[in-house]
Amino acid sequence: MIALLIRDLRLALRAGGGFGLGLAFFLLVAVLVPLGVGPESATLAKIAPGILWVGALLACLLSLDRIFALDYEDGSLDLLATAPIPLEGVVAVKAAAHWIVTGLPLTLISPLLALLLNLPPAGYGWLLASLALGTPALSVIGTFGAALTVGLKRGGLLLSLLVLPLYVPTLVFGAEAVRRGAEGMSVATPLLLLAGITAGVAALLPFASAAAVRINLR
């Protein structure tokens, strides 16, 4: 499984393109929103938590179709399905690799973009914490969506439509945690619920994703 993880990471880094796009998109959102909304710092501070979370979510969405597409096309997904490690494990590793190349960089760069959006200082720590806790859920749910659409020619639009409603709870709790943090309120409840969602989907969704991949490979 570790070998597979390293292979996926190496492919993502060397094949280039797809994954840098997420970061660039996140940066674009953070730069364009103040230009569109206007420079009043009070307004920006108010919408910063939501914008940062929406930006991270959309950036994550951009690279989802690449999770399985390349492996499906060149047949290595068939090999992985017949490999001795269970397909559930393969799917979980794929999600982990996706998180390392998109969710993790997004989380690390977010304080810098929060600066552009004038997030109140109290919110920085909670922004990092909520993204670190929440983006794994985005990757795991996205892997499920990618598994459902892996056999389709142009699955991109369908993939976003399928994944969007599934992202709602994560987005609500994540943005809520940052907003409360920025306003100096207690963040325990949304943060715990966010962590609960991540733990829950990481434990259960790989089974559904693996089932979907199996159906598509049949």
Partner: peptide
Amino acid sequence: DLTSVLCIVGSVFAVLSRYAVNF
């Protein structure tokens, strides 16, 4: 098969969203 899996997962998330927006 695929829509059945989606329906099951979707049911769980529909309930989750319901409680999330209650917030």
